[in-house]
Write a protein that binds this DNA or RNA. Structure first.
Lengths: 225, 225
DNA sequence: TCAAAAGTGTTAGATTTACACCCATGA
DNA sequence: TCATGGGTGTAAATCTAACACTTTTGA
């Protein structure tokens, strides 16, 4: 092993995952009880250490695959958290990632196996170490992302009603939206396609199901909500 | 030394600084020739290793103080860069930071001593490793920041003319702005104060000098440019 | 038959954009 | 005196926000 940098000290590097979901009314966060010392038993984000043969992004994907069985998640880096004493035991620097998942695609047996809970973002308990800070930054970035890029669909089934979509945006923005104005904007974005299908679960009358057409979006990528 | 995590491997952690400046017409980047192997002699951002007794943010501040002699710089984290082979010699993960400095406050002797150059952002050469990527992300984040928060002043002298400010925004946005519309918006923000002072260096007639009033801004923080 | 969610347009107000001339001064 | 950058207002167009009723259908 060569060692150009051997005079400098190394640190442990971990990733922590902020897993966002949507239950139809509220944004949710998937958290668990920390399984290791120090901090065993505290509410915590799910994380893992970066191995020497994988990139930091890959580590986040690996950890999430373990947890969800899903590989093609929408994932973005929040940033590095590097206070000296953020981990009470050792010097560990952590890189946080947020992930958008459709709760319905997620195998609830995995949730139980790992002893995780979906908690409402606006009722988040105190978390281990600096995890609350990570969540706050992630939420801010996620909000901005959802208002400028068509990624909200990652939080919904591939077929969704406009009411579902609106409820999601209301949860993200933390304010009620006007139904007519909202639908007017959706109509302008022709990459949000109406299908022939009807969802009857949400109302007696039934609501049209829509889908996001990625190809159409790439042809005229103008999104704003 | 306890070792809760000793089964996991550690990595070297560095910080890299993207130093933005403005020369009155163009956004500039302060870069140098890499002083160490591997990659000696290539254009590179200025960086350094994170020590075990300092936070990652503190490491960035330390490195920048070394380089500029300035302590109260506007600095924001861009993110962590963690490809396995981003450093050709060893596994080094780096956290990038961007910094806004007023070129006039910067002691040019330091620049010469460290053998650094101001290069135009739109004429940036190829840099060592993934540094071009870092700069690109930093630029994107900086652009967003300048359009939503009053930090542009960090790139200007504390007294500045409206023409200077407009030129700066033109450089940041990469487009020309309408002088009358620009000044109209400035007038709405009463925390950008006109002083009695006149700058005669830029024109025969002289231009009024303005200053950013932080206190007034904190009383009604509404900024948009 | 009625409760509950789906669906649909118009208008006033606010914001944004385009645009051209006079002023003060040093060279 | 003239070239140079400083400084100023108005009107059209666009965008945003507010607002209420009809439809469908299962219980």
């Amino acid at each position: 092993m060569t060692s150009f940098y051997s005079e400098h000290s190394k640190v442990w590097l971990s990733v922590d995952c902020i897993i966002f979901g949507f239950d139809g009314n509220h944004l949710k966060l998937l958290i668990g009880r920390r399984q290791m010392d120090p901090g065993r038993g505290e509410w915590s984000l799910y994380g893992g250490f970066v191995r020497s043969d994988e990139s930091v992004d890959d580590a986040a994907h690996r950890v999430l695959f373990e947890l969800t069985g899903m590989r093609t998640l929408y994932m973005r880096q929040v940033g590095a958290f590097g206070s000296v004493d953020r981990d009470p035991g050792e010097r560990v620097v952590s890189v946080a990632y947020y992930v958008l998942i459709n709760v319905a695609d997620y195998d609830d047996r995995l949730r139980q196996e790992y002893n995780l809970e979906w908690v409402r973002l606006d009722e988040m308990p105190q978390l281990y170490s600096d995890h609350n800070q990570m969540v706050q930054q992630a939420q801010k970035q996620m909000r901005l992302k959802l208002s400028t890029e068509p990624v909200a669909f990652r939080l919904l089934p591939s077929l969704f009603t406009l009411t579902q979509l609106q409820k999601l945006y209301e949860a993200v923005k933390g304010e009620e939206l006007d139904k007519r104005n909202f639908r007017k904007r959706i109509k302008e974005m022709n990459f949000i396609e109406k299908t022939e299908l009807i969802d009857k679960t949400g109302s007696k009358r039934g609501a049209a199901l829509y889908r996001f057409n990625k190809r159409l979006y790439s042809e005229s990528p103008n999104f704003k909500l």
